Amino acid sequence: MAARNVIRVDGDDLVWTTQVRFLRPLARLVWAPAALVHERLVPRALTRVTQDPAARKHRRVTAFQRRVLNPLTRALPFQTLLETTGRTSGLPRRTPIAGRRLGDEFWFVSEHGDRSQYVRNIRAQPRVRVRIAGRWHAGTAELLRQDDSRARLDKLPKMNSAAVRAVGTDLLTVRVDLDR
């Protein structure tokens, strides 16, 4: 079996072609299972190579948060948590956040905007719960695209705001109108 990969850039498109020539009949049997793996890996590799820097940053940050940071901070009794309803599973999803309560409103900024899973869950079901200082409060979340998220961060806890600015790729303000 002889194989050749040809990569061609055509404007904004990247085209990867794999050419396989079978020199012996046994080669077809060898290539059949290898082709299944090849067909899955090549598109993933191309996606990673062609992603913009913000998408790569988002992927790295969210991987760290999901595997390391969120499990640790979720266990802290006074960590502020946002509980949404999973848009597909219907199960409660709890995400550590930081923000500020002002009267009957809780404000925070999503660091990855529409790419955040909890933002997607809010779009599907805006009823949420927020754990503030160890107490749960029900409310309705609203995504405020017109709000200046960078200016909003100046009014929120300083340490978290600095982290959101550092790792954020697409800031989005969220307000939760808490039930009385």
Score class of each variant (00 low, 15 high):
R24D: 14
S149V: 05
R94W: 07
G90A: 09
V61R: 04
H58E: 11
N5Y: 13
A35T: 10
D10I: 12
T85W: 00
D104M: 11
D104V: 07
F106Y: 15
A63G: 01
L36M: 11
V20E: 05
A124E: 02
L171C: 03
L156G: 02
F64R: 13
G134E: 02
W107I: 05
R56M: 06
P33G: 06
P126G: 06
S89K: 08
L41A: 13
H38K: 11
R4Q: 12
T80V: 05
S161A: 15
S149G: 06
V167F: 14
D147V: 14
L29A: 14
V61H: 05
T84C: 01
L82N: 05
D10C: 10
V42H: 06
L76W: 08
W107N: 01
P53V: 08
E142N: 00
R150T: 11
L41I: 14
A162F: 07
N121K: 03
D154G: 00
P33S: 05
F64K: 10
F64M: 08
A35F: 10
R145T: 10
T173D: 06
T85F: 00
N160V: 00
S89G: 13
A35H: 13
D147E: 13
L29N: 04
S89E: 12
T62Y: 04
E142M: 01
P77Y: 03
A138K: 04
G90R: 07
R40E: 14
S161T: 06
P25A: 12
R101L: 07
V9I: 15
P126S: 10
W136M: 07
A63N: 03
D114L: 14
A35Y: 12
L91M: 11
G99T: 09
A141H: 02
G11Y: 08
W136G: 04
R44W: 12
A151M: 05
V119Q: 02
L81E: 02
L72V: 13
L29Y: 10
F106P: 02
V61K: 04
P43G: 11
A32L: 14
V42C: 08
R120Q: 15
E142T: 10
R165M: 05
I122A: 01
A2F: 12
R180G: 13
R127W: 00
P96K: 09
L102C: 09
R44T: 06
G168P: 07
R21G: 03
L41C: 06
A63L: 11
A32R: 13
R152Q: 11
S89V: 08
L91F: 09
V167L: 11
V174Q: 03
E111G: 10
A2G: 09
R59K: 09
R165S: 03
T18V: 15
V37S: 08
G99E: 11
L172S: 07
T169L: 05
G113W: 03
T140V: 12
A45V: 13
L14T: 15
R135A: 12
V130C: 01
F106R: 07
A3W: 14
L46E: 11
R74C: 00
I132C: 01
G90V: 09
D52P: 02
A141K: 01
A138Y: 00
L26Q: 14
F22E: 08
L72Y: 10
R152H: 02
R175Y: 07
Q79R: 07
R120V: 01
S161Q: 08
L102A: 14
D52H: 09
R24V: 09
W16T: 12
R4A: 12
P92D: 08
V49I: 15
